[in-house]
Amino acid sequence: MEERQKIKVGVSIGDLNGIGCEVVLKTFEDNRMLDFCTPVIFASNKTISFQKSELNLEINYHGVQEASKALAGKINVVNVWREIPNIKFGEATKEAGDFAIQSLKAAVKALKDGDIDVLVTAPINKSNIQADDFNFPGHTDFLAQELEGESLMFMITDGLKVGLLTDHIAVKDVAAAITPELIKSKVATIENSLKVDFGISKPKIAVLGINPHSGDNGIIGKEDDDTLKPTIKELSEEGHLVFGPYAADSFFGSDGYKNFDAILAAYHDQGLIPFKTLSFGNGVNYTAGLNKVRTSPDHGTAYEIAGKGKADHSSFKEAVFQAIEIFRKRAEYSELTANPLKKSRLKREFR
């Protein structure tokens, strides 16, 4: 693949009543973004025109009927629907949820068909997207069904990467859901992602405890002693650089995370609260483990500021750059592993 080949970045528009469209348009309002990629937004010309006018943004776009017709050097908008949505900024309406899903389904189909190279998803509302033909807690679960591989919610920045053993399940169900098989599967997914997507040859992974103080030797729950510790020991004996379990309350505050390439948290908030505290605005939600690349910003619909022009697009812009970089890393890894002689030569050259 040529070094400067333009990656086709597909964008699902998210909840039209939230800040999704705003952060998308603000990102591509900067024409320099077209030097890095060809944006393909799944919505409609009229929808984008309305948002552009309401938000007072200066942006030109090119309407197409399908993603395969997207033009390089243009901001392409695929006309997914003909209706004119009734946009009510700041409100969680069923109509907005329906359009968000139409956009997502069209974008995922284009991704599977090879009409776009990567997918960046704008935020959705997990409540108003539910329907008879869409019953998923969020993007990750839907993509896990539609694409190949074992999905993992992986929150990433250059200096911090946090994966989750369990993601969108109730806290009361976490301990029972964590099994040796799940731990091994998630560790394998993180290891492979760090190697293939980020070029880390021997990744070191820290695992956080399930209970406070990792159970305090069984005083505050036995799951860490009965499940986590023996599984981590087994993985270590097999040659994996996996360590823990570490008490979650002090792990991030003491900068312990800086000694590892990734952290595997037991449940959603245990991993995402410290991640967003340390990285908010620069973090990216990456769905690792699948055969296609999907990223998203680290924030939600932010109804409270929707339509006011106040949304910060930094995280969405970073999600675009991360998707492009991961796509290139995967292509590079595929090329090197397919040609072991070239790989050996490169190793000698960089010693």
Rank of each mutant, 00 (worst) to 15 (best):
I41W: 09
I190W: 04
K317W: 01
E91V: 02
G218R: 15
A72Q: 12
V171I: 14
L34S: 09
L228M: 06
A248N: 06
A170W: 07
L290H: 01
K222L: 06
N128Q: 11
S214L: 03
A177V: 03
D216G: 07
E237M: 12
R82T: 15
Q5L: 10
S250G: 11
R294M: 06
K329F: 11
A288V: 10
D167A: 15
I220C: 04
K94F: 07
E2Q: 12
N339C: 08
G18H: 10
L235Y: 03
T47Y: 03
A70K: 09
I305Q: 02
N135G: 05
E2F: 13
S201Y: 03
E318L: 04
C37K: 07
L34Q: 08
P340T: 10
G253C: 13
P230V: 10
K233M: 10
Q5N: 08
E3H: 12
I169W: 08
K69F: 10
L147A: 10
D298P: 02
D98A: 15
I48F: 00
E22F: 09
I75T: 10
E181D: 10
K292R: 07
I232D: 13
L272V: 11
K161N: 12
I305W: 06
F316N: 06
K172R: 14
N211K: 00
L346E: 15
N56A: 07
A188L: 03
F321P: 00
Y246H: 08
I205D: 11
I101C: 06
S44A: 04
I200H: 12
F321I: 02
Y267V: 01
T93K: 13
F350D: 11
P85S: 10
A338P: 03
V24F: 11
T166Y: 03
G283F: 08
I305Y: 02
K105S: 05
